[in-house]
């Protein structure tokens, strides 16, 4: 299994490909259900993952909610691919969770990306 640092670097590279067109935002079911909270959209979750990885954000309750409320339904990816970007958004969010989940399961409050 690759080490966490390599996974972080790869994740940041992939996230950097996003051109912030935001076409994926409107189709996200949790964005629709929250009546327009962008951090509960696919694009919002990518940004959260990015800033957690580069240390600009600290992992707390609201960010946990944002990351773990992703349905992994891949509707955003369908939109992204149709716009020629082809970013596997859900896979990136899932990879972010993979960095977190083991530590969350161990202890909870001290877990960080």
């Amino acid at each position: 299994m690759r080490d966490d640092q390599q996974i972080r670097t790869d994740l940041l590279k992939e996230i950097a490909k996003c051109r912030a067109c935001r076409f994926c935002v409107d189709v996200c079911p949790t964005y629709q259900a929250s009546e327009g909270v962008e951090s509960l959209s696919s694009y919002g979750r990518l940004q959260i993952t990015k800033y957690l990885l580069n240390g600009m954000l600290a992992f707390d309750d609201p960010l946990t909610y944002c990351l773990y409320s992703c349905l992994q339904c891949r509707r955003c990816e369908r939109m992204c691919h149709s716009k020629g970007q082809a970013i596997d958004i859900c896979a990136l969010i899932q990879a972010g969770r993979e960095l977190l989940s083991a530590r969350l399961a161990e202890g909870g409050s001290h877990a960080a990306l």
Binding site: T30, A33, S69, C73
Partner: peptide, 18 residues
């Protein structure tokens, strides 16, 4: 469009809205 089921375990209110 998703049924909201995958987040039912932790966020039932959000799941129900979806």
């Amino acid at each position: 469009a998703c049924c909201g089921g995958p987040v039912e375990y932790a966020y039932p209110a959000l799941s129900r809205s979806v």
